[in-house]
Amino acid sequence: AIERGSKVKILRKESYWYGDVGTVASIDKSGIIYPVIVRFNKVNYNGFSGSAGGLNTNNFAEHELEVV
């Protein structure tokens, strides 16, 4: 089962992080479509409006993740 702290591989082909491994930061139990927040070591794009980097978290559905 996917739980907080799990290392997961991203299976969503259109994702910037496809094939990468991230760490589960949290799981939303409220029934939303993409409840699993995954944190990565790298950012997906340069930040804007003065922020240092881009996003390094993204929401995924459990079926888009594979525990490694």
Rank of each mutant, 00 (worst) to 15 (best):
R4W: 08
D20H: 12
V21S: 02
P35H: 11
P35F: 13
Y18T: 03
A25V: 15
T57Q: 10
R12M: 04
V43D: 13
I32A: 11
P35R: 10
V67K: 07
N46V: 09
N59E: 07
I37G: 04
N56T: 12
S15K: 00
P35A: 12
H63A: 07
F48I: 13
A61S: 07
L65W: 01
S6N: 08
S51H: 10
W17H: 05
L55S: 14
V36D: 00
S6D: 13
V8A: 00
S49G: 11
T57W: 15
K13L: 10
I2V: 07
R39A: 10
E14C: 12
R39L: 12
F40A: 00
A52T: 13
G22F: 04
G5W: 04
E64S: 01
K29I: 10
V24H: 01
E66V: 08
R4V: 15
N59R: 12
K9F: 05
Y45P: 15
A25F: 08
G47C: 15
V68G: 01
H63P: 03
S15R: 00
L65Q: 01
H63V: 09
P35Y: 09
E62L: 14
E64I: 03
K29D: 09
G54L: 07
V43F: 14
H63N: 08
V68Y: 05
S49M: 13
V24L: 01
I33P: 14
K13P: 10
G19A: 05
V67D: 03
K29L: 11
I37S: 09
E3Y: 10
N44L: 14
S49I: 12
D28G: 05
N41L: 10
S51M: 11
G50C: 15
I37K: 14
E66K: 08
E62N: 07
S6M: 14
G53R: 03
L11Y: 03
G5T: 02
R4A: 13
G50Q: 11
N41I: 08
G53H: 11
E14F: 06
I37N: 08
I2P: 04
P35G: 11
R12V: 04
R12W: 02
V67A: 05
E64P: 01
N46C: 15
L65I: 05
I10G: 01
E3C: 15
E3R: 14
T57A: 06
K42F: 06
E66N: 03
K42C: 15
A25K: 08
H63M: 05
S26G: 13
R39S: 10
G22P: 00
T23F: 07
V24Y: 01
N56L: 09
V43G: 10
Y18M: 02
V38L: 01
F40Q: 00
N44V: 09
D28M: 08
I37D: 02
K42H: 07
R39K: 14
R12S: 04
V36E: 00
K13W: 08
R4P: 14
K29R: 13
I10D: 02
A52G: 12
E3D: 08
S15T: 02
A52H: 11
E64K: 04
G5N: 04
E64M: 03
W17N: 03
N56Q: 08
Y45I: 15
F48C: 15
H63Y: 12
Y45E: 15
D20V: 12
L11C: 09
V8Q: 01
K42P: 06
Y45K: 15
E66H: 05
A61Q: 06
Y18F: 11
S30E: 07
S51V: 12
N41P: 09
K42E: 09
F40M: 02
G19W: 04
T57P: 05
K29P: 10
E14H: 06
N41M: 11
G22S: 03
G47L: 04
G5R: 01
I10T: 01
V21G: 01
K29S: 12
G54E: 09
E14T: 10
F48G: 14
Y16S: 05
V38D: 00
V21W: 05
D20P: 02
G50D: 14
I2G: 02
N59P: 08
I10F: 03
K29V: 10
G53I: 11
T23M: 07
K13Q: 10
R39W: 13
A25M: 15
Y18N: 02
E3A: 12
I33G: 12
S15L: 02
K7C: 15
I32E: 09
G19N: 10
D20K: 11
S15D: 06
R4G: 05
I10N: 02
V43S: 10
T57M: 14
L11S: 02
I2A: 02
S6Q: 10
L11N: 03
S26M: 14
G31C: 14
G22Q: 01
N58V: 12
H63Q: 06
S30M: 04
S15E: 02
S6E: 04
S30Y: 07
F48W: 09
I27D: 00
N41C: 14
K7I: 12
N46T: 10
